[in-house]
Design a protein around this nucleic acid. Structure first.
Length: 117
DNA sequence: GCGCTGACGCGAT
DNA sequence: CATCGCGCCAGCG
């Protein structure tokens, strides 16, 4: 068998982390990368999503650390991601994703109450 | 072999 | 809260 390239391995892990994101919930690129065992490789996660080929991959649940859509406003990807998130019950305002639960505890509220619990 | 760009992150201003 | 700059790695010309 072909040698398991670290890059492919990392890619596989990142995709798995993205698939692990439950509906109605979102995660940041850095968060996904961290879950994949690649802390600090947020850019790599983005690269993977950009080159993915899985229609079932919930890439739309992946946003920037600020909770903002990674795509430029008005872009096709932006609209699609925004629409998909709304379809899952995610509140999107001005390209910013806000959770439905209204806890103002940033530490707990940022990316999911059960994310790290 | 080299430099630029990019679905990023975080600290500082 | 918005903006700027630096650091990070990987693909591409």
């Amino acid at each position: 068998m072909a040698a398991t390239s670290s890059s492919d391995e990392s890619t596989r892990r990142i995709l798995a982390a993205v698939r692990a994101i439950p509906p109605g919930q979102v995660a940041g690129y850095g968060e996904v990368a961290h879950r994949a065992g690649l802390p600090g490789r947020a850019r790599l996660a983005a690269r993977v999503l950009a080159g993915n080929g899985d229609p079932e991959l919930p890439w739309h649940r992946v946003l920037r650390a600020d909770g903002r859509i990674a795509f430029p406003e008005g872009s096709a990807g932006y609209r699609e991601q925004c629409q998909r998130l709304r379809a899952e019950g995610v509140r999107v305002e001005g390209g910013r994703v806000k959770r439905q639960r209204g806890p103002r505890d940033l530490d707990e509220a940022v990316w999911g109450p059960d994310s790290g619990a």
